[in-house]
Design a protein around this nucleic acid. Structure first.
Length: 351
DNA sequence: AAGTCGGGGGA
DNA sequence: TCCCCAGACTT
């Protein structure tokens, strides 16, 4: 087992990518990078990291920012609870830690949005503390090299991989080891098309020897996908429109959208006009629909969204609804889901 | 233990 | 299509 860390760290020193969060020792920046990179590939998160550092050079800057600005900068990256928790944790750090980033594993772990993985990553990378990270890369690399078939999404599997990672971790090189195993998983021991031919472990890898590389790691569950049909009512009122901030437990919390009428089946215009909700809004008088968009299909990991946008005429403006009246020219200040952003661009409502 | 939360990219 | 990504949180 001793070969593992040695080869890995040596490989890392020669082959690591130059990334902005690797050339800093600022725990705030390391924390930010780790939140952004949760369930997100480096190439997708990189520009967001740079934007955040530019707008919020310190944790104080982030803490005092309005939530809408944080969400706007996060727009398009997904998993928006990360942005809300990031913002809340920044406030916690300023208030309860006097703007100094916490330096112990337990204090880091207590921050909103920081779980076992992220706490270990920050503790090791920023402070050299001996906590092994276990992320998707670690599951993949370890399950293959040591041919472990325990499902990674089971309690037993999580425990087993966590213990193995910590056994393999050289306590004095925690930062390098953790980053090395993740980098190696991303560049060589990939989910598909792993580069076994050029792999530094191909003389030791059990899965390679038994030709089980593409069967590992084992995952037990699979997600169910639901269809949802979103009918958006777009009021256009002489240079203004009406938007709404999503609340509750559903997707896109804290992002904006138009007035939404959701149905579990595909709606056409006639059905929409007859829908109880719409009739109720105008007290039985059908509103005048002046434009119906194409259907937008938007795929999430667990939902297939089908959306259509209905523009309603000026005389039907919803002054009686609790919507936010905003200038169309100001729409670019608000964070919208990708789906709505696409519509806005198609209609030239934003650039 | 199971569900839920986004969006992009690769094969 | 399906799978995965420097996972966390709620139920």
């Amino acid at each position: 087992m001793d070969f593992f860390a040695k080869r890995l760290i040596k490989w890392y020193n020669f082959n690591k990518r130059e990334l902005p969060w690797r050339s800093t020792s600022d725990p705030y920046k390391i924390w930010l990078s780790e939140i952004i990179l949760q369930q997100t590939q480096v190439n997708q998160g990189l520009s967001y990291y740079l934007k955040f550092i530019e707008h919020f050079p310190t944790v104080k800057d982030l803490a005092k920012a309005p939530e809408d600005k944080v969400m706007k900068l996060w727009q398009g990256l997904g998993y928006y609870s990360r942005a809300r928790n990031l913002h809340e944790a920044a406030k916690t750090i300023v208030k309860e830690h006097n703007a100094g980033f916490p330096q112990s594993y337990n204090e880091i772990r207590a921050l909103k949005g920081v779980g076992d993985y992220t706490a270990a990553a920050i503790a090791s990378i920023a402070y050299g503390l001996p906590h092994a990270v276990v992320d998707g890369n670690v599951y993949r690399v370890l399950s293959r090299v040591f041919e472990i078939e325990t499902p990674i999404d089971s309690t037993a599997g999580k425990k087993e991989f966590y213990e193995l990672a910590n056994e393999l971790l050289p306590k004095k090189s925690a930062a390098d080891f953790n980053q090395a195993i993740m980098e190696f998983g991303a560049l060589y021991c990939r989910p598909q098309n792993p580069d076994c031919a050029n792999c530094i472990f191909n003389d030791k890898c059990e899965a390679f020897r038994t030709q089980k590389v593409n069967q590992l790691p084992v995952k037990a569950k699979k997600t169910k996908v639901k269809d949802r049909y979103l009918n958006y009512i777009v009021f256009v009122d002489n240079g203004y429109t009406y938007i709404n901030k999503r609340e509750g437990k559903d997707i896109w919390k804290s992002l904006y959208e138009f007035y939404l009428i959701e149905s579990d089946k595909r709606n056409n215009e006639a059905n929409l006009l007859k829908s109880k909700e719409l009739v109720k809004i105008w007290k039985g008088k059908a509103p005048r629909i002046i434009n119906v968009s194409k259907e937008y299909k938007h795929i999430l990991s667990h939902q297939n969204l089908h959306a259509r946008f209905y523009q309603i005429a000026l005389e039907n403006s919803p002054h009686h609804l609790k919507l936010k009246k905003v200038k169309i020219a100001q729409l670019n200040k608000y964070a919208f889901p990708r789906l709505i952003e696409k519509y806005l661009k198609d209609e030239d409502l934003i650039k």
